[in-house]
Amino acid sequence: MNSWRGFPPAAKPIRVEGGIKARSKRGEIAQTWWSRRFIEVLESFGMGGRLQRGKRYARAGQVLNLTLSTSVVVGLVQGSRPEPYRARIAIKAFTAAEWERIERELAGQALYAAKLLAGEMPTDIERIFDEVGLQLFPVTMRELTMDCSCPDWEIPCKHLAAACYLLAESFDEDPFQILAWRGRGREELLDRLRALRGTVAGPAAKEPDDAAPLSECLETFWTAPEPLASATGPEPEPTVPDALLDELEPLPVKIGNTNAVEALRPAYRAMSRP
């Protein structure tokens, strides 16, 4: 009996069109070493069984939207109710002083700098973080904050689990997302590495006659040059007007039946319109 002991039958999620679907159709979702490492870390916290519940959601395209900013990943996940649930995965970003130590260590080792400048994630980059007393991936559950607006009390619920799997796939596609989550965007990091290694293009770069001889710049010869600036200027990054609200802890205040933070979202979005 579906309603045995008074429990109602499990509600099926509302199917959506145009959601974000996991590329993997069976087996493991994470493909690269760094995304597998992220899933392994979550499983090491005893989340393995609960994470599996979200695979079906991730593959069915129930995640409508997934945004990553410093410290916070927010996913909108369609469940069985008309209003999508808001799943949030937060981690502590490194401070500016901590990133300075990391960048100096990375820049001091040519192989690491070359791989990052080429858009690759060095296989043992975690060692660099260890050497400066930091961890790239969380080592305890206390380093992660997860919450969801659904009524499920388990952490992670299937909505959070689906967001975790799609986050791992985004790490497959762009490993710099991991570093951005920790507080350092791709271009800012690469600019810092170029500056620390003395490869930033300056006025002398426009004057070939004044260029240093090859014998004096062998160490930096193979590093990637800066990309050419677009003639029309860089595209502005899209802004999320209510992203600030995602940084807030859930408030124990309701306006009618709506959480106070959610009630403020329409106002933030309205103020951002032209």
Rank of each mutant, 00 (worst) to 15 (best):
S3W: 11
R5M: 10
F7E: 12
F7G: 05
P8M: 07
P8N: 10
P9W: 10
A10W: 04
A11M: 09
G19L: 06
R23P: 01
K25L: 09
K25M: 07
W34R: 02
R36F: 02
E43F: 02
S44Q: 11
F45N: 03
L51P: 05
Q52C: 02
K55S: 07
K55H: 02
K55C: 05
R56K: 13
V63P: 02
V63G: 01
L64E: 12
L68E: 08
S69R: 15
S69E: 13
S71P: 01
S71H: 13
V72W: 06
L76M: 14
V77W: 03
V77Q: 04
S80F: 06
P84Y: 04
Y85W: 15
A87F: 07
A96Y: 03
E98S: 12
E100L: 04
R101A: 12
I102F: 06
R104T: 11
G108L: 03
L111K: 08
Y112A: 04
K115C: 09
K115I: 02
L117E: 11
A118E: 14
G119L: 01
D124Y: 08
D124P: 00
R127P: 03
R127K: 14
I128G: 00
E131N: 15
L134N: 05
L136K: 03
P138G: 02
T140A: 04
M141A: 15
M146N: 00
D147P: 00
P151A: 05
P151V: 04
P156N: 07
P156D: 06
H159A: 03
A162E: 01
A162R: 03
C164Q: 04
L167H: 03
A168K: 02
S170I: 06
E173V: 10
P175D: 04
Q177M: 09
I178L: 15
L179P: 00
G183E: 04
G185Q: 10
D191Q: 11
A201H: 09
A201Q: 12
A204C: 02
D209P: 07
A211I: 01
P213Q: 08
L214M: 09
S215N: 09
T220R: 12
T220S: 13
P227V: 02
P227N: 07
A231M: 09
P234W: 11
E235K: 14
T239R: 15
T239K: 14
T239D: 09
V240P: 07
L244C: 10
L248C: 15
L248T: 06
E249T: 11
L251N: 01
V253I: 15
T258C: 00
T258I: 11
T258M: 00
N259S: 12
E262I: 08
R269L: 11
R273G: 06
